[in-house]
Design a protein around this nucleic acid. Sequence first.
DNA 1: TGTCCACAGGAAATACGGGGGT
DNA 2: ACCCCCGTATTTCCTGTGGACA
Length: 419
Amino acid sequence: MQGSVHTLIRTQIDKATANAIVRNPAYLDDEQLSREGQFAVLTEIFNANVRDREIRDVSSHFAPMFQNGHPVHLSVLGKTGTGKTITILYLLHEFEELCRERRIPFRQYHLDLCCAVPCFRALNNLACLMGASKYYKRGISLDDLMLAIEKHLRSVSGYVTVFIDESDNIRTDADSFYKFLIKRLPQRIEGKLILVFASNRLNWADNLDPRIKSCLKMRETIFDPYDATDLQTILEIRVTKALRAGMMDEGVVPMIAALSSRNHGDARKAVDLLTRSAQLAEKQCQHITLDAVRQASEEIERDKYVTLIRTGPKHLQAALYAALLGSEKRPKSLHTGDAYLLYDHFCGAVSLRPLTQRAFSDLLSELDMYGFIRARTVSRGRYGRSKEIHIAVAAPVVAELKSTILACFGMVGPVVTRR
DNA sequence: TGTCCACAGGAAATACGGGGGT
DNA sequence: ACCCCCGTATTTCCTGTGGACA
């Protein structure tokens, strides 16, 4: 008997290795790569003429630096997944090298405001990057932080580049932060300050105080979403690095590229689709087929909804549950009032204080915006005006959403509403 | 043609909570 | 530790509305 278990384990391992498609998963997930690794992949991608215009644009913008000039600030705009951050980091790294060769003093800092932070946090993080101050939770004034940064930079000559990633992500008092960077800091330091902003909101600077905005001299460059050709190039480079050769049907990469460019033009999502397809194919012990891509795409779509609702506010979850439940009972005509009643009961069952109907109406609009439901306002004559609610997601997703919501409230079975 | 339903959705008021100053 | 301020969430109040029905 023992022998058979050993054989089983061995054959299973052999089988799994024989079916392995992913050879080097790091190349499917940049997080797992070192900065050098990322740059190496990027070099290949850029060499294939992807992001050519943007590279020319930014390079020529920084060119005056090599003739003792002073480039104005730069604003890099574009949707998520268009490679703004990594391209800028790459270019700044290149500029740094070039400056070293030509003995031009240059230093760069990358301030990543990946989550919304108040002015204090942003300044403190910047000061920490520069080594100008320690990390404070609180208890130090904004002015002290600014002084620390000034003091640190006062002795620095040459070019100082500060790359402010997600520059629209300053939650409170963005004006003070930018007033400091744009108006005050350049006057108090000897070096030449160049700010690089990146944002996925085209009009992020519009919210700034007009006085600050007026003295913000900057040039804008826009990163367009990748088109199918670009995505195909990017995917092919990743495929050769990450996957075993010959494990993929013809047309898989073009299909992923086409789907992704049509839906979002986001390279990260395209690579994600490739990864999911590969994993799915591995599980099914076959090559990556067009069908696997289709399945993976559906899986991602489903996950998107499920994570959206799982991480969303409680009341939104409750409202969606009510809408799903109500639509089953009355697939054709679920109106706001009925849905609110169900919501009210659900809240009672999970001991959540229900919001008013006015707020519930806004929740429905939000669910509509996210694409869970379609809620259009209709007039039923003397029976009043109301929203008509239809489910906008496929049946399997509905089931998953319902169990997810119940799990969020710590329940397993369907809720028994009393009345 | 006027009425009236059952809400939509805007605006103002109010509650709440967290961060920063003292 | 305490207070104040400010941004956000929610409630309250209100006006508007399209079409069935009498």
